[in-house]
Amino acid sequence: MKKVRLLGICCNWSPFACYNAAGMARMKMPDNFKLIRVMCIGRVNQALILRAFEYGADGVILLECNDEDCRYGPGPEVGHENVKRVRKMLHLLGIGQERLVEKSFAAHEKEELVEALWDFAERIEALGPVTEQKAMAAHV
């Protein structure tokens, strides 16, 4: 089976603390998973999520803080709104809205984060690669 390409966009605060702690504890994570760290999920807009798919991602997970934990204010809410719209765009494009996932974590939830990543990897692997991937990668 062809390996899928998984991308995580991760907030620097709670979820990255989890990710870091999970790494320190040597917890196993999917090896086809790449992470981009941003200062806040509110920094990520519709365009950036969409571009991940344009550049060939098969699944994207937004790792966010809980709504009330945001260090800046409305970050996760911005994330929810963007995910809602980009999902609709992915549906229009026939890529499938289930390829975009969002999850929020408190700073101590490393087990939950790792579990969420495995669950995400499993779901996307079940869906398989976006068929268009090859065609698009040639153009970027």
Binding site: H91, L93, G94, T131, M136
Partner: peptide
């Protein structure tokens, strides 16, 4: 504008196997 999202989806449409729900 809009960080290139509009151009992104236009480029994504160049995939021959595209099956849209438009």
């Amino acid at each position: 504008a809009h960080d290139g999202a509009i151009h992104s989806w236009m480029r994504m449409m160049t995939a021959p196997e595209l099956k849209q729900n438009r």
